[in-house]
Amino acid sequence: MFLDEPSPTARFITCVVVSFFLISVDHEQRHLASLRAGLSLLIYPIQYAVSLPVRIVDSIADGFAGRQGLRKENEAFRKENLFLRSRGVKFAALESENKRLRALLDSTAEMGEDVSVADVLAIETTAAKRQIVINKGSLQHVYLGQPVADAHGLVGQVVEVGRFASTVILITDARHAIPVQINRNGLRAIASGGDTDEALSLNFVPNNADVAAGDLVVSSGLDHRFPAGFPVGKVTNIDSDASEPFARIRVEPSAHVGRAREVLLVWPRAKSQEIPPAGGATTTAAPVLSTRPKAAVEIAPPAAPTDVGGAAAEEEQEEQN
């Protein structure tokens, strides 16, 4: 190829320069997201293969589940279904009442969400990085910043979207924080991750605040990213030292964070009026968008051409207006 092949040293120096350039760009901005999304296509088969043994074991275990066990399970599900249904009926009544009251108050926070189940492919086990990879990507309309939950509460949010897979940062990651409120009295706080899967901490809550062990902590929705009212955790431990300005409050996550095999992707259908500030890095203002396809169009990375080209242009115009 080259008449005079560059020496390894020259190549190495080139690599060093390019690497430093890439690192600084990647550290400062998000311009490389599409490049990542493209390259992750090469990685996806490996991530899938790694999760395969677990899946196989699961399906074999399912196959061997005895008749008796299945029957028992079925019975339990039936009971649970009945119970949930009765609650659902009540919920419908409450919802309409809530709507009416909200209309009286002239507030338009009307919430609802679509969900879809995703399998967890791999768990990033490095101690400082609590992330999981799930098997849905932009093809399934996953978008950046999308809330992820399981049956018990919030798990995290999407930080990277590929075509077929996405990365989710868990709420227990040290780099993650989520605005919450105490369900009992509406006290607002911020819950941030820490060292372990087992605990979040509530920051900047005054020593004399009305928080008690056992209080349910739910998302407050002030971030316009997580829908309001999703369970985040339960207060387990309050350590108030009079010499310090703030209490140290530990919250045990409700969701099976870091142990879940399946998670729920949530598409909020919020009809709030204010548009969240386009806060640089990860924001795509997705939560305000009302429907699924719209959200998908909004985030579709340049690497993955949208399949609804015309609609995309239209939407974009709407955005700008």
Binding site: R11, F12, S19, F21, L22, I23, L35, L39, I43, E124
Partner: peptide, 28 residues
């Protein structure tokens, strides 16, 4: 060569969610 190692490193960066260029430089 150094360049192929560098590219493998970029793939590793993507997989580990590290900064692009981090593993790449190490592998180079």
């Amino acid at each position: 060569g150094v360049l192929s190692a560098w590219f493998i490193g970029i793939l590793a960066d993507v997989m580990h969610g590290a900064l692009l260029g981090q593993h790449a430089l190490g592998f180079a």
